[in-house]
Amino acid sequence: MKFESMSQRHAYILERLESEGNVRVADLFDALDVSAVTIRKDLKILEDKKLLFRTHGNISRVNPYSKDRSVLEKENILADQKFRIGKRAAEMIEPDDAIIIGSGTTVLYLAKAIPSDLKLTVLTSAMNISMALLDKANVEIVQLGGVVRKTSTSVTGNYAESILDNFTCSKLFLGVDGIDLEQGCTTSNMMEALLNKAMIRTAQKTIILTDSSKFGRRGFGKICPLNDIDQIITDNGVSNTMVRELENQGIEVIIV
């Protein structure tokens, strides 16, 4: 595809971003049939106008770097999507399961959706998850201990990680701050990322619960590469391109 003017190239780039959310810069070289120097100049102009963000080898519509925000601030963001994600995840829990639930607002909706009569054991690092399960008589709660992060109401640290060594669980339901095709799953806090790594080692299956706004974003702490993930449950705001890329890597993507 050959575009004669800079404005045509810019329109094409922005249309790609609008439909896909994230685009690899290498794909633009072939699609626009221009030099790497020309593409970089185009992207610099668009970035200066705040129309896109550049990272290593990729461009995105929104700032890919997530910041640490409190659960109170995040809980009502995309609440309907999180409710549907949590409800779908709860349907995957079987009687007498032993599961891990990480921290975050999306997994909180999972905890609230667990049927009151379902018998299971839940390990969690998040105090708000434990509180949401208190009135469910058949749920045994194992609260991990450690240093409390006030923004997430979750514990972190070596003590919490060592407790996990005493258990094995069938499923881990994990919330993340970012999912990136290159960086994998990330969170905004390094200590929480380390605890999430330990959770992945403890569980037989890792299931990510995330709304579509987290795709293409990156947090400071790297949790795991994409090949450590078995399933992702998200809403229909995720792009078809992202879904295909994830499925090509063997990840089952469930859209609610």
Rank of each mutant, 00 (worst) to 15 (best):
T206I: 06
I39W: 12
V238N: 11
L108H: 13
T124W: 10
V25Q: 13
S212H: 12
G216L: 09
A90T: 04
M199F: 13
T121D: 10
R218Y: 09
I100R: 00
K2F: 12
T187E: 07
P95C: 05
C169Q: 05
V142D: 05
G237Q: 09
K67T: 15
S70P: 01
R149V: 02
L246S: 10
S188A: 15
I45L: 13
L133D: 05
R217I: 01
D42I: 06
L72H: 09
I99A: 08
T202R: 10
L174K: 06
L209K: 04
N158Q: 14
T206D: 06
I59K: 05
R24F: 12
G21A: 07
A113D: 08
E247K: 08
I129L: 05
L72Y: 11
P115T: 03
G102M: 07
I229E: 06
L195Y: 02
E192H: 01
S116T: 09
K50E: 15
I233Q: 11
K205A: 04
N158H: 14
D117E: 14
G175I: 03
Q249F: 05
V71M: 14
I251W: 04
R40G: 02
Q8L: 14
Y109C: 14
D235Y: 00
D211Q: 02
I232G: 03
S116W: 00
P64R: 00
M6Y: 06
T151D: 13
Q249W: 04
V256R: 09
G216F: 03
K171C: 04
D228T: 04
D48F: 01
I232C: 05
I101G: 01
Q143P: 06
D48Y: 01
A111C: 04
A198T: 11
A36G: 15
E247A: 03
I85A: 01
E252I: 12
T186I: 07
D27Q: 09
M127K: 10
E247R: 07
N196D: 15
N76F: 08
T121W: 07
R84H: 15
D180E: 01
Q249P: 01
F167R: 05
I85P: 02
I179A: 03
F167C: 09
I229Q: 07
G175E: 07
D117Q: 11
I100F: 06
M199E: 14
A26M: 08
M6H: 11
D33R: 14
V147R: 12
V139Y: 04
Y109P: 00
I208C: 10
D211R: 03
